[in-house]
Amino acid sequence: MQHLIDADHHNILPSHGEALLFPDFFSPQESNLYFDYFKSDVSWIQEPDFGLDKKRMQQRLTAFFGEQDLEYSAAGLTIKAKSWTSPLLNIKEKLEAKFEASFNVCLLNYYRDGKDYMNWHRDNEHAIGAYPVIVSVSFGSTRIFQFRDYKEKIPVVSLELDHGSVLLMKMQTQEHWEHRVPKTTALVGPRINLTFKLILKKE
Rank of each mutant, 00 (worst) to 15 (best):
L70S: 03
L70R: 09
S73C: 11
S73Q: 12
A74T: 09
A75Q: 14
G76P: 11
L77G: 06
T78R: 09
I79K: 14
K80C: 10
A81I: 12
A81R: 04
A81T: 10
A81D: 03
A81Q: 06
W84L: 09
S86Y: 05
P87I: 08
L88S: 08
L89A: 06
N90K: 14
N90Y: 10
K92E: 06
K92R: 15
E96W: 07
E96M: 14
E96A: 05
E96Q: 15
F99P: 04
E100R: 13
E100G: 04
A101T: 12
N104F: 04
N104R: 05
C106H: 03
L107V: 10
L107K: 04
Y110Q: 09
Y111T: 11
G114L: 05
K115A: 12
K115G: 12
Y117M: 10
W120E: 05
H121Q: 09
R122P: 00
R122N: 12
D123H: 02
D123M: 05
D123E: 14
N124T: 04
I128L: 06
G129Y: 01
A130M: 07
A130S: 10
P132G: 01
V133M: 09
V133Q: 11
V137W: 01
S138T: 15
S138G: 07
S138K: 02
F139V: 11
F147K: 00
F147C: 01
F147H: 02
D149W: 01
Y150H: 14
K153N: 13
K153W: 02
I154C: 11
P155S: 04
